[in-house]
């Protein structure tokens, strides 16, 4: 994503000259931008509603969540926000690991750890939204 073409240096001349070609990185790059635009509305809207609107965080409790998730609108909002933010963030972290972890082994295992923990969080969040029970207590 550099704005100017890099100087020549080891590893930069032909970073993907071997192996199969695929457009995976292009789609990942595009996904970061499309998800980013959608997240502007979902995330900034979420932060504004939760932290600023009538009383902000002080008014949030179980009953507040129950009231919100009674509506499919907020369920879908939260679900889309969860998936997009997690996939966007996970792909961002994948880029960062690729940038800094130099040994193949280290890179591989850090990415495995990332994917497993992100998968767990996405699954957990999705289950919570779909199985929420306002009468649990």
């Amino acid at each position: 994503m550099s704005l100017v073409s890099p100087r020549r240096g080891p590893g930069l001349d032909a970073p993907r000259s071997t192996g199969q070609r695929s457009n995976y990185e292009l789609y990942a790059w595009l996904f970061m931008r499309i998800s980013g635009i959608v997240l502007v509305f979902l995330v900034l809207g979420h932060l504004f509603i939760m932290n600023v609107l009538d009383g902000g965080v002080q008014r949030i409790n179980f009953a507040f969540v129950a009231g919100r998730w009674a509506s499919p609108f907020w369920q879908i909002w939260d679900l889309v926000m969860l998936w997009l933010a997690m996939l966007h963030g996970t792909n961002g972290l994948r880029t960062i690991i690729n940038d800094y972890a130099e040994r193949d082994q280290t890179r591989f295992w850090m990415k495995m750890l990332l994917y497993v923990s992100s998968g767990f969080i996405i699954l957990l969040g999705t289950l919570v939204i779909f199985t929420f029970d306002p009468n649990i207590g």
């Binding site: 179980f62 009953a63 969080i121 969040g125 919570v128 199985t131 929420f132 649990i136 207590g137």
Partner: peptide, 12 residues
């Protein structure tokens, strides 16, 4: 996500 998941444990 984990702290919000506590809505599945109990309101308290």
């Amino acid at each position: 996500v984990v702290d919000t998941a506590l809505v599945r444990v109990s309101p308290e």
